[in-house]
Nucleic acid binder design. Structure first.
Length: 221
DNA sequence: TGCCAGGCCGGGT
DNA sequence: ACCCGGCATGGC
């Protein structure tokens, strides 16, 4: 079976190749990155994570013990550093209290149940929860972000006012529930968004999806 | 220089 | 049920 979104995936994969997202990083590091990258450039997040690594803090029990102000200073390059320090601590407390610090135990719980539990953590919204499920837990939850929304809306495949779960359902109903596919697809959409679908750039000549635009070019914004 | 980046929360209408 | 401001650093 083939669907328009499968075709789009093939186009993106042919054009950009595999993205190797979050390769070789520990699940914990992925979780930390998922919080730090909220509305933030990955380059800044990388600096913050490098600080944590240099401080020998990329380990749950060390992280859950470090003072929030100290954590805040270390993650400063990632921006919003005070709120993110709070959010990270909320996540660490959850991992320790609910699963005794075992990520393996956490990801063994049924995905839909776990997703609801993650969403209940202060500072974890749908994209962060789905990123944790997919990229740290290797569970098939499709990640939607601002780029996903913009790319699909500009092409007329969804309404501009479609909400997170409408967009997620659109993907999950159009694709086989495969972790590798979800992983690669989201990463490819981010790549496309960064290079060809910026807010300030409604159209780009080299965009591999140009011939899929509606007549008259991309719908604004 | 202003705008943007792999969101989310809380308060006001 | 929306809508909007706050949160903050760094790159182009």
């Amino acid at each position: 079976m083939t669907t328009p979104l499968m075709d789009v995936y093939r186009r993106l994969h042919d054009a950009f190749g595999p993205q190797y997202w979050w390769p070789g990083e520990s699940p914990l590091e992925v979780i930390v990155g998922a919080v730090l990258t909220q509305n933030t450039n990955w380059r800044n997040v990388d600096r913050a994570i490098a600080n944590l690594r240099a401080a020998d803090l990329l380990e749950l029990h060390a992280l859950s013990r470090v003072a929030q102000e100290e954590l805040a200073e270390l993650i400063r390059p990632a921006g919003y550093y005070r709120v993110k320090a709070k959010r990270l601590h909320a996540v660490f407390s959850f991992l320790v209290d609910r699963f005794d610090g075992s990520l393996e135990a956490m990801f063994a719980t049924p995905m839909d149940v776990l997703r609801q539990e993650l969403l209940a953590i202060h500072g974890v919204g749908p994209e962060t929860a789905d990123s944790i499920l997919l990229y740290a837990g290797h569970l098939p939850s499709f990640v939607v972000d601002a780029y996903t929304h913009r790319v699909l809306a500009r092409h007329g495949w969804i309404d501009f006012d479609a909400d997170y779960h409408q967009i997620q359902d659109h993907f999950e109903n159009s694709l086989p529930a495969e972790v590798a596919l979800y992983n690669e697809y989201h990463a490819l959409l981010v790549h496309l968004g960064k290079h060809y679908c910026r807010k300030s750039k409604p159209k780009c000549d080299a965009c591999p999806l140009n011939d899929l635009l509606p007549d008259g070019g991309p719908l604004e914004p």
